[in-house]
Design a protein around this nucleic acid. Structure first.
Length: 381
DNA sequence: GTAAGCCCGGTTCTTACATCA
DNA sequence: TTTGATGTAAGAACCGGGCTT
């Protein structure tokens, strides 16, 4: 007499975890197989990148032709709608880098200097509109030309690009405490900018503004890799060096991968715990059945069921009519087994293209069918 | 075969923030 | 309550190696 024990698999193991639904979707989408449910987000082909590039450029052309308010409105809309924490593996993990509530516009006023709108904080100090990252546009562009050979013409002060850059300021001191407020940041930024001007050496590290990060995040959500055109466009849009944009995307991909690894690790941990618990339960059930056999041998005198595996479909069929031992747990187990086996067969037909972690529970486990199935092949005794 | 460009993993270093005396 | 020192996490930048064109 043989006993088949189902330890569950993709369909069942995913149930206890809410986030596995996303992983399953992802699995289907990214063709990575169940076991990991891994995805680093959609991979884009160069053609897709070109398409997105064209589409994005279409939008940005509109941006460039629009006035500052349109740009600001777009950014504000993006801030409130898109930048939410999302651990879905269907899309890159997005971190909420922005304040939840937009700060009223009356927290700042606007100066118009040489046709350029400069934002002034409520305290009267120049706020992040003077972030050194976009402070000396001419210097940045010269740097771009030096580093990347790109010939980006500096925008005139009253151009749309310039207005957009200056409108990328933070409107209040919200989100900072202590001495690290926007005024101090602007002061330090101005100091560093002056140092850079004096020394002529580029700063090594500095923080991107929240709006710059938000804009990069939006771009990252559209495409997690950059074409040279996209990189230059983003750099020009944010008044950053192309190298900065490139590095930001590299770091962003690394962060996404790290986060995904953490999620996968957590999932595998839970999966292991679930399987351990299932194994424990089934062992207990087995002991109960054995105890039942010992205490009540009448059931065991019934004709034994012989299980035979069909070589073509790898299904196990019975050669004689099975008697019902009529334990509820056994019925539940067989039902589960039937369901999972169907899934296994489907997985097998998809071929070995999917990535596995070696923890697959379905590929090598024999299928147990307590009832004879209607396969055309008659199992051999 | 070689150079250029890109990406990735790892690392360094700066910055912002929290905690505590 | 304020302030300075300290620890820590996050992020920007760098480096070296591998891969592709």
């Amino acid at each position: 007499m043989e006993l088949g024990l189902s330890l569950g698999d993709a369909a069942t193991a995913s149930k206890p975890f809410g986030f596995m639904e996303k992983s399953t979707q992802l699995t289907n989408k990214a063709n990575l197989g169940f076991c990991m449910g891994l995805s680093i987000g959609p991979n884009h082909t160069p053609q897709e990148d070109e398409d997105e590039d064209a589409r994005k450029h279409g939008n940005h052309i509109d941006h460039n032709s629009d006035d500052t308010n349109t740009r600001t409105a777009t950014i504000e809309a993006n801030k409130t709608t898109s930048l939410t924490a999302d651990t879905s593996t269907d899309s890159p993990i997005q971190l909420d880098l922005l304040p939840n509530t937009p700060v009223p516009r009356n927290h700042h006023s606007t100066l118009n200097l040489d046709g350029t709108n400069y934002e002034v904080g409520s305290s009267g100090n120049m706020s992040r509109g003077f972030d050194v990252n976009r402070f000396p546009a001419v210097i940045v562009h010269e740097d771009q030309a030096d580093q990347d050979g790109a010939t980006l013409s500096s925008s005139p002060p009253n151009s749309a690009t310039s207005s957009f850059q200056m409108d990328f300021c933070i409107y209040s001191n919200k989100g900072r405490s202590g001495s690290h407020n926007e005024a101090d940041q602007a002061e330090r930024a101005s100091s560093r900018a002056s140092d850079e001007d004096e020394n002529g050496s580029a700063r090594k590290k500095l923080r991107l503004s929240k709006d710059q990060s938000a804009f990069l995040e939006e771009s990252f959500k559209e495409h997690n890799t950059l074409t040279p055109k996209q990189k230059l466009a983003l750099a020009k849009e944010l008044n950053l060096r192309p190298r900065q944009v490139e590095v930001w995307f590299q770091n962003r991909r690394a962060r996404t991968k790290l986060k995904q690894t953490e999620v996968d690790c957590e999932y595998l941990k839970r999966c292991c715990e679930t399987l351990t618990e299932e194994n424990r339960r089934l062992h207990k059930e087995l002991q109960e059945l054995r105890a039942l056999k010992t205490s009540n041998p009448f059931y065991m005198q019934l004709p034994a069921t012989t299980l035979t595996m069909c070589p073509s479909c790898e299904r196990v069929a019975t050669t004689s009519t099975t008697t019902t031992t009529n334990t509820t747990s056994a019925t539940a187990t067989t039902a589960t087994t039937t369901t999972t086996t169907t899934t296994n067969n489907q997985n097998n037909t998809t071929g070995p293209t999917s990535k596995t972690t070696g923890l697959s529970l379905s590929s090598t486990r024999p299928r147990f069918y307590p009832f004879s199935h209607s396969h055309p092949h008659q199992p051999t005794a």
